[in-house]
Simulated scan of single mutants.
Amino acid sequence: MAKVVVIGGSGLIGSKVVAKLAEHGHEAVAASPNSGVDTITGEGLAEVLVGADVVVDVSNSPSFAAADVMEFFTTSTSNLIAAEREAGVGHHVALTIVGTNRPQHIDYFQAKVAQEALIRESGIPYSLVHATQFFEFVGGIADTSMKDGAVHLPGNLVQPIAAEDVATAVARTAAGAPLNADVEIAGPEQMGLDEWVRRALAFRGDAREVVGDPEATYFGARMEERTLVPVEGAQIFATTLDEWLPANPPRS
């Protein structure tokens, strides 16, 4: 069985990936600043990668400001790749986003594009897992889309996925041979971005009105209708919004 180091291993996806890999007999190591591993400064990287066969990167920037998120993903990934070369790691798996290779002007996506390029050009065998938006972020999307007392969102299509399914896809990829390619994953249902948030808020008894607004932006940017949905051939997971909502009440 493999030693797999999960960068961001204490977070939403990372903790689930560590658990799934461990269940299947792999030595899964959760690496994060909390465990003394900092990919920005490089602290602890050499030590944690000793004997590692695979590195999984599901880390995220603490700030989504344009300059901050670009600095995070380029610095973190560059340091990680350098440490992997020294350690002889044979497979780099990174979680990224559906839509980074399509027309869009989202600062966060641009930072992920830069991260992806560093990985592809590193010479280390890799797999890039592009996920659609997570069900878990529906509340945050509503909160950041408030305008004049209502949630304003466009009707651009989304195909959201449960974090549990994302973790399953990432863990499976880490346990397999490098793809040296990209794979897309998504949930089973396409719907408008406004419809998704409206359904979730209604189920949770949140009285905020959701306004379908074609002029509204998504994290400050406008997109084409299908930027956020997967291409043909994507891996489709089964968890629906109606199944996910009862098991995931909003955090107080």
Rank of each mutant, 00 (worst) to 15 (best):
V197T: 15
Q110W: 06
D148I: 04
R199Q: 09
A163D: 01
V151F: 00
H105N: 09
G192L: 09
E189N: 06
W196N: 00
D182G: 14
F137I: 12
V183Y: 11
S145Q: 02
V113H: 02
G155C: 10
A142T: 02
A181D: 07
E164F: 13
E184P: 07
L118T: 15
K147I: 14
I141V: 12
G123T: 08
L157C: 05
P125H: 11
V158Q: 00
A174V: 08
L128H: 01
D107N: 11
Q115T: 15
R102A: 07
R198G: 01
A111R: 03
E164I: 05
E164K: 06
A142R: 00
E195Y: 10
K112W: 04
A181L: 12
V197G: 15
G187P: 14
Q133N: 10
E195T: 08
A131E: 06
G192A: 05
P188M: 04
N180V: 07
G176H: 09
G140Q: 13
I106Y: 10
I119E: 03
F137H: 15
S145W: 00
D107P: 05
V138K: 04
D107E: 08
D165I: 13
I141P: 03
P103M: 10
E116Y: 15
D143W: 02
A142Y: 00
I161H: 02
A171I: 07
G187F: 04
V151T: 01
A174D: 10
Q110D: 08
A171H: 09
A167V: 12
T132A: 02
D182Q: 12
G123M: 05
F134G: 11
V166C: 09
E164Q: 13
H130V: 10
H152N: 14
S127A: 09
E195C: 04
Q104A: 07
W196F: 04
S127G: 12
H105T: 10
Q133A: 13
T132M: 02
A111D: 09
A171R: 14
A169Y: 01
A114D: 15
S145V: 04
Q104M: 10
Q159P: 03
I141S: 04
A167T: 06
N101D: 14
V98W: 01
L193G: 11
R198F: 01
T132Q: 01
A181N: 15
Q110K: 14
V158P: 00
F135T: 02
A177S: 13
